[in-house]
Structures are given as C-alpha cells and as structure tokens.
Nucleic acid binder design. Structure first.
Length: 303
DNA sequence: AACCAGGCGCATG
DNA sequence: CATGCGCATGGT
C-alpha cells in the first residue's frame, strides 16, 4: 500500500510560488530548507516521526511529495494545513493590494512582488529563538549562528547523501550548556535568553496554544514580553510570523526603517508619527506591509 | 578603526 | 510611559 501518495494543494488567486521561493532562497543560508530546481525540500517532525517532503508547483496546484519517512494517512491533513499556513495560502490578499495601489510610493509592489505571501514560521519556539539570535546583529551572521545551533541540537533526516534538519526541541535546548552556546558565538545574554525560553516551553509555562487562546493582540504581546529576551521587536515578529497576527509590526526594526527611508516615507528613524500614519492606513494588513517592505530591501538577481 | 547590524533590560525623569 | 545608556559580538 502506498502511504506516501502525492498531495495537491490548490493555488489561490494572487499567489506566486516563484515569489515565495525567491523569499525563502534570497541571499541567505537557511539551514531549515533547501531549494533546488524550483523545488523546496524540508524536513518536518510529525507525531514524533521525521519526514522529508518536497514541494513544487504543478499547474494550478502545489504538489507535496514525501521523499523519506512514512506519513500516516491521518497526518495528511496536518501536512496540507502546514503548507497552507507556511505560505499563507488561505488568505485573500486582494484588500491589501487595493490599499497599496492607493499609495503612489508603494503601488509598484503590487506588480513587482505580485503573489508574494507572508512566509510563516509555524513553530513559535523556533520563531522566538530565531529572533533572539538575530537581535542587533547582521542577518548573514545570524544565519550562521542558527545553523550551528540547529546542526548541533536539531534532529536530522538523510536523503541521497544530504542532511535535512528540524529545529531543536525546547526540551533539548532547555538543558543546553551556556558555554557551548557561547562557543557558537552566542553572546552571554543571548545564550541565557534562549535557554530561559526553552525552559519556559519545556515546562509548559509558554506555548503557542496558550498564546493563541488569549483574547487579544495586546495580551498576547504582553504574555511574550514578560519573558527575558523577548522585547517589543521580538514579540511582534513572533506574532507576525508564527501566529500570523495582522497587527504585528516589529517596531524599531532596522530593515523596516531602511525600507521606509528608501521609499521616502521617513527621513530618519525618529519620525514615528509618519510611520504610524502609514500603518494606520493599512489597518489589518500591517504585517503584510512590513513583509513587503522587507522584500523591497533585496534586489532581485536578474541573471 | 569606527561604525553598523532585522534589540534588550534596566535605571532614570 | 519615554528616553538614555551599557551591553555583546562579528562584518565591513
């Protein structure tokens, strides 16, 4: 019996697999997926089992294949949901496009980045760790540090001579050694933060379910920033990427400020009223606007 | 060598 | 609550 038959997910309007691929593959070395020949390869842990999947575009569908590991039929729905969430495929982004067209400085993005979706990070623990790693350092260095962490503590699945990693479980990082993290070029504080957050997830005092169950954005943000190492920027980023909160704006983000400056929306980073005015015009689509502005920071390679 | 990079916590007013 | 400052660590 074939447990691993291909899964097809219909592609919605205003969705471009190429744009999403481009984002995932930009000019950084992310250790949690590999992209080759317009196909994404990613390892997942489903019910304790490691699975390697690949995703490519086939006509009007995304086609998901399991290359290694067994996907029980009852987990098929989980996988479809995972991919749908990852690429934010269930959302109708037409209203966001209508708003962008109203702003002469941003309207070009509806064509240049057409179909780009807010790429998520399903695992909240992973999203927060990634933020902590990335705090106040440049992105290429951040990706290096993340790779060291994942290759040391994450589980892996091998396929045709390649290794595919899954982000380490909180239970594992909760007992990680400070000095070992520091040897991976975590700063003292960051090592402390990551282990602290890992302990919170491991003992259940912090979880995605618990955060999701909170009544509103403000209380979800508060529940996150109560933890050491999670500031305003990290909380908003995590809510934006993991919970797909529309209101998640990583205030103070250097990339966001640079993009706003590139679009002549602000002159310097202190002009918060202008920033607030822009985002209030994008009510309900704030995180999408941030994502598109980030997208504008990297020029596409035309070769 | 100085300044920057997808900040945070803590002490002040 | 807003502002200011020290901190930490590699890249350019």
């Amino acid at each position: 019996m074939d447990h691993n038959q291909q899964i097809l997910v219909p592609i919605p309007a205003l969705f471009s697999f190429q744009e999403c691929l481009w984002f995932l593959n930009r000019n950084y070395d992310d250790c949690l997926h590999i992209i080759r020949d317009n196909t994404i390869y990613k390892a997942l842990e489903i019910n304790g089992e490691l699975v390697l999947m690949c995703i490519r575009e086939e006509g009007s569908f995304l086609a998901i294949d399991i290359l290694k590991g067994d996907l029980p039929t009852e987990s098929k729905g989980y996988l479809i949901n995972y991919v749908t969430e990852w690429f934010d495929m269930q959302r109708d982004i037409q209203p966001f496009y209508d708003l962008m067209r109203l702003d002469g400085r941003l309207a070009y993005m509806t064509e240049d980045f057409k179909g780009l979706r807010l790429i998520g990070i399903d695992n909240l623990f992973e999203a927060i760790c990634w933020c902590i790693i990335g705090q106040q350092i440049n992105l290429s260095f951040a990706y290096k540090v993340k790779r060291r962490l994942v290759e040391r503590f994450g589980s892996k699945i091998e396929h045709e001579g390649e290794q595919f990693f899954v982000f380490p479980a909180a239970q594992i990082l909760a007992s990680a050694d400070m000095d070992e993290l520091k040897s991976m070029q975590f700063s003292e504080k960051k090592a402390e933060y990551v282990i602290g957050i890992a302990k919170a997830f491991a003992n259940g005092s912090l979880s995605k379910n618990a955060i999701e169950a909170l009544p509103d954005f403000t209380s979800r943000k508060k529940a996150l920033t109560d933890h050491k190492g999670i500031g305003v920027w990290t909380a908003n980023y995590a809510l934006m990427k993991s919970l797909k909160e529309p209101e998640g704006i990583p205030h103070g983000d250097i990339g966001l400020l640079n993009a706003l400056s590139n679009h002549n929306i602000i002159q310097d980073r202190s002009e918060t009223p202008k920033i607030e005015a822009l985002f209030s015009a994008f009510k309900g689509w704030e995180s999408y606007l941030v994502f598109y502005l980030w997208r504008s920071l990297t020029v596409r390679d035309l070769s």
